[in-house]
Nucleic acid binder design. Sequence first.
DNA 1: CGGTATCCTGTGAGATACTG
DNA 2: CAGTATCTCACAGGATACCG
Lengths: 152, 152
Amino acid sequence: MINVKGKEHSCPIEVSMNLIAGKWKLLIMWHLLKKTRRFGELQKKITNVTQKMLTQQLRELEADGLVHREVYPIVPPKVEYSLTPFGRSFEPVLNMMIVWGYEYAKRFGEVSYDLSADIEPEYREVVAEKLKDNAQKTSPNETEQEKVTTSI
Amino acid sequence: MINVKGKEHSCPIEVSMNLIAGKWKLLIMWHLLKKTRRFGELQKKITNVTQKMLTQQLRELEADGLVHREVYPIVPPKVEYSLTPFGRSFEPVLNMMIVWGYEYAKRFGEVSYDLSADIEPEYREVVAEKLKDNAQKTSPNETEQEKVTTSI
DNA sequence: CGGTATCCTGTGAGATACTG
DNA sequence: CAGTATCTCACAGGATACCG
């Protein structure tokens, strides 16, 4: 059993899910992983996000200890967002998700985009190997099973 | 640009997010990763999920090509769910999320639970190393910056 | 520039009851 | 056993306007 901020979880997966649930959070963290950015910068990078949503999701990430918000008391205002040390530890997860999403899109969608520049090879290899393994494990076992019984 | 089933994505992260968004999907995949399971089995494993939600999320996973649904035409009905080859390629992502969620819970919550049994050491090491790295990178740089200007 | 403050809407998700 | 079929509602998320 896991308790995080008054919420019960039966598995660490739920913890992760709760932290990254939110339409823009992963995108935000992805952009902050590269460098510290100002609010307006993020808004330009993440097309389609409204000011309200960007603010809201950034505040949630901050409250969860993943993002640091630095306010410079100047005028006009300047606010910089960066990942906390723990936020940066999310990088492997994020990289895996990117690689996996990319592989999914190659298989089930159309991609006009090359991943190689963004992601270190080691992450691609992990997923690639899993896909190879599974191809082997999917042995010739399409023998149908069409029995009909009346009990268990 | 990425197009998956009529939906535009600017980044593979969004693809992954769309696939795993859903309160129970990760938990379902986690249980199916170990073995093929019947509907009722899943319902017992995943406490608190309603029949309706379990059915719904399983159908979405099936439509997305991640889960295979095998119906045995017997009475009483028997339906088995398993991961497709591609669904199984999600394992590295899932493991990373579990490790990361666990580390988060250790830091920001209370855990009465040991991970070691479930997850291969390699995954734990990746996150552990990231956390070490970040500890080093967080150098003594808490010098405040309290200037006030009237222009940029 | 980087926000609040409102108002509004779609839909994810729960509860409950019924069925092949 | 493994589902549908309704009904309901909270809340994530969007549009728009104003502010220090």
